[in-house]
């Protein structure tokens, strides 16, 4: 994968725009014939039930867990779990704790970050950006440009007015700094010149999103990858 998502943070640290090119993948099902469910620690996080500890390994391929920490419970015995409850009103955790509901089949999925979570993570990044300037061993550092994880990078750029553009991209994606400048260009053309847009407010400009998708597509194509685009409007 090339480009995963784009975020824009206002100078106050608020998330004003987010767009996903693809969603995180990963789901798995596990069956327990007898009470209790062993080795899994579940925790309620926001409106979901998330796996806090314990992985379920794939018996065929070692080192590739079916269910990883961070996945959320999506269904029990084929019935969907919505808002931590089953369709009949029982809470999912009480069903798992009930010996009479066994054998039980639990399905977990990696969910995309909710808008609240994104706002929180981006304001975290905003403050970390400031700390990185403070901790610099050299004078006059401008802050984080590229955050490296094992499988992907987060690229940031800050404009003179303090707006931050963030692109989450795969390691093999070329020319990301150029892409960030291009997004800045689009932002000034389609957002700032929009008479109905007030500064530091969430960006809801169709024209901006449409042009952004076009630009992201062209950079993706440059990388020569085939992918299915899923446009998200939060």
């Amino acid at each position: 994968m090339g480009i995963y998502s784009v975020y824009i943070i206002s100078k106050a640290g608020g998330l004003i725009f987010s767009h996903d090119m693809s969603y995180p993948q990963g789901e798995g099902e596990v069956e327990y014939s007898r009470y209790p469910v062993q080795g899994l620690v579940l925790e309620e996080v926001d409106r979901n039930i998330m796996l806090k500890y314990g992985e379920v390994q794939n018996p065929e391929i070692t080192g590739q867990p079916v269910i990883q920490v961070g996945y959320s419970l999506v269904s029990i015995n084929g019935e969907p779990v919505v808002n931590k409850c089953l369709p009949d009103g029982r809470t999912a955790l009480s069903v798992i704790d009930d010996p009479s509901s066994f054998p039980i089949k639990l399905k977990f999925k990696r969910l995309k970050a909710s808008i609240n979570e994104r706002i929180m993570l981006m304001s975290m990044l905003h403050s970390i950006y400031a700390i990185s300037v403070r901790l610099s061993p050299e004078e006059g550092s401008k802050g984080i440009q590229c955050l490296e994880a094992q499988h992907y990078n987060i690229n940031c750029t800050q404009t003179r007015t303090g707006v931050k553009f963030i692109v989450v991209a795969g390691k093999s994606q070329p020319k990301v700094p150029e892409l960030l400048r291009k997004i800045y260009e689009l932002y000034s053309d389609y957002v700032l010149k929009n008479p109905f847009y007030s500064l530091d407010m969430p960006i809801k400009c169709e024209l901006f999103t449409a042009n952004l998708v076009k630009v992201l597509d062209s950079y993706e194509r440059e990388r020569g990858s085939i992918y299915s685009t899923t446009t998200a409007n939060n």
Partner: peptide
């Protein structure tokens, strides 16, 4: 915090490790 941020934002795996970051002046 960066470590938890990167694992939350990871599009690939929830166990993504943090390697470092680079700025225009230094690299951690």
């Amino acid at each position: 915090s960066l470590k938890s941020l990167l694992s939350r934002l990871s599009p690939v795996s929830t166990r993504d490790g943090f390697i470092g970051y680079s700025t225009d002046k230094y690299k951690l």
